[in-house]
Amino acid sequence: MNKHLRHIGVHFELYLGSIFLSITSVLVIMNVITRYFIQVTFTWTEEVAVGCFVWTIFLGLANAYKTKGLIGVEVLTNLVPEKGKPAVVFITSLVITVLSSTMFYYSILYFQGSTKVTAALEVSYKYIYASIIMSFGLISIYSIYFLVQSFRKMFINHDINLDIEDDLDEHLLEEQLEQLTDHKEGN
């Protein structure tokens, strides 16, 4: 597969989330500027900023789960030998499948029954709450994927790679190291 396409595929939540985060940032900064220079505040900016923030969070959460970016207590993984690791992944994926699909189901119920409207713009909160449905939907899919892969690794093919490659952190660190080593050579 094309490297770029794969990158977008793995990180599409982050691309989408970046758009929301950008909107949030622009609105917050704009509010400071307008308040101090033209003494005007817009009540709707805070609402839209918070709405986009919620989308950012739940898109980020789905990606963080997929790429093992969530912190946990690593007792079990540190106790079991290398051979037992797929079994651990199988158990955690099973638990998370149950949890996230439960949350997915109730997110839909909540969304359907939600009656709240925002204070300033008086629009339905459903535009914000769609983000939880999407997030838990994605997490359910990913956890089922990990469940199947770990099962296959245990019983069918031991060579399967259980991780979805995440080159983002590596990339960031490399960038930074480059800048610092530039300096060392320059010294």
């Binding site: 939540e13 989330g17 970046s18 985060l21 980020g60 959460l61 963080a64 912190i71 960038e175």
Partner: peptide
């Protein structure tokens, strides 16, 4: 660098705020 910074922030934000 901007897309990288944004993406990195989105992911960390999701992880922190979910807790």
């Amino acid at each position: 660098h901007i897309p990288l910074i944004l993406m990195d922030t989105v992911k960390s934000t999701g992880a922190v705020m979910a807790i």
